Simulated scan of single mutants.
Amino acid sequence: MTSISATTPLDSVDPPDTAAPMKRGRARRALASQPKTPLPDLTEKVSFDSHEPIGKQIFRALRQAIFAGEMAPGTPLSEKEVSEMFNVSRQPVREAFIKLVEAGVLQVLPQRGTFVKKISPRQVREGRFIREAIETAVARKAAAAITEAQLDELAANLREQKAAAKANDIAAFLALDEQFHFLIAQSIDCVAAWNTIQDIKAQMDRVRYLSLPDVSPLDLLIRQHARIVSALKAHDPSLAEEAMRAHLREILISLHPIAERNPDWFEADEPERVPLAT
């Protein structure tokens, strides 16, 4: 198995190969003949004045572009092209690529390069299962500890969600959705819980972008959020846990129709031996 390190260019990961050189050459020529998809301009997503490491900013910019569908599955990425886009050395780009591979949204194909990966339905279900375990525990704890000031923050967030939905601003709604879940984790001083699931929910986030607003109407998601806030306001741990679980299982309803509508974006499904939604 080939190991990938921060000093190994992902563009050139070549494990020992005994295949015929002519076959590899034909594959490379076939790939080169395909029309190249231009990358979106992400330069505004990175600030050299920020105290945050540039590699982390590049990782987040690329991840968000993949989540939002700006780079479809199969889109090739090269360290050279991305480093030139951001006017940086290859090292921070390489670090970002490694993290994206670990998150399951990029794949390295030997002899070919690095590409945006298709969505794995199984990984979506697995990510949701882990996220549900963490966030239902957070919601239960928050119901006992949340303050009036923190409830006011959640209520303000809900109002902004409604405004974004009315304006059909999907990007704004999703940002507010992220903040909503972050605020609940923050209410129990456990932001680490939210940080932990960021990569775990990578495949879920890609499906969310594809599902809105047709398959998962914004009004439905807002009602689910409102139910969570009501349970927190009532300081009812069981109800808060139930409301959070029902909300996070919404993706199980939308996953199949979204995959049917966008077959080129999904890998073939591999059902788990033990159903994770029970």
Rank of each mutant, 00 (worst) to 15 (best):
F86D: 03
K118M: 13
P92A: 07
Q111I: 07
A61K: 00
F86P: 03
A139V: 04
E84R: 13
R26F: 09
T75M: 06
A30E: 12
G127F: 03
L106I: 08
G55S: 11
K80D: 14
E79H: 04
E84D: 14
P121K: 08
R125D: 11
Q111W: 14
V124E: 05
A61E: 06
E84C: 04
Q123E: 15
R94F: 02
F97M: 07
R140I: 03
A103M: 11
S33P: 00
R112Q: 15
V116L: 12
S78D: 06
E95H: 11
R29Y: 06
G74T: 04
G69Q: 06
R140V: 01
K118F: 10
Q91K: 12
A68T: 12
S47Y: 05
L77Q: 00
I130T: 09
S50M: 11
K23P: 00
A96L: 04
K56W: 11
V101D: 05
Q57Y: 04
E135T: 06
K23G: 04
M85F: 02
G69W: 07
A144C: 06
F59Y: 15
E70G: 09
H51D: 15
E126V: 14
R24D: 02
V138W: 01
I119T: 10
I130R: 05
V82N: 03
T43Y: 05
A27L: 12
K56M: 13
S47K: 05
Q34P: 00
N87V: 13
A32M: 08
A144M: 10
T37Y: 02
H51G: 12
T147Y: 00
G25I: 03
S83R: 04
I130S: 06
S83H: 00
G113E: 07
I130V: 14
K141C: 04
V108S: 10
R94H: 03
R63G: 08
G104T: 09
E70M: 11
D49Q: 15
M22C: 07
Q64Y: 10
A145P: 00
E44I: 10
K45M: 14
V116D: 02
S50V: 11
R122V: 09
N87L: 13
I119S: 03
A143E: 01
V116G: 05
E70T: 02
I66H: 04
D17C: 15
A20E: 13
A20L: 13
A103Q: 11
G55Q: 05
K45G: 08
Q107N: 12
A20M: 11
F59N: 06
Q34M: 13
S33E: 15
P76W: 02
G69N: 08
P15D: 09
F59P: 00
M85I: 07
Q111F: 12
A144D: 11
A133F: 11
T75F: 06
P15S: 08
K36L: 14
A65I: 06
A145S: 09
A145E: 10
Q64A: 10
V93Q: 01
G113M: 10
T114M: 12
R63E: 11
V138C: 03
Q57I: 07
L77A: 02
G127T: 02
S120Y: 08
P40N: 06
I58R: 01
I66Q: 00
F86K: 01
P35E: 07
P15F: 09
E84V: 08
T75A: 03
L62P: 01
K117P: 01
L109K: 15
A149H: 03
I98Y: 01
E79W: 01
I98K: 03
I119C: 07
M71T: 01
R122N: 12
R122M: 13
E132P: 01
S33H: 11
K99I: 11
A19N: 09
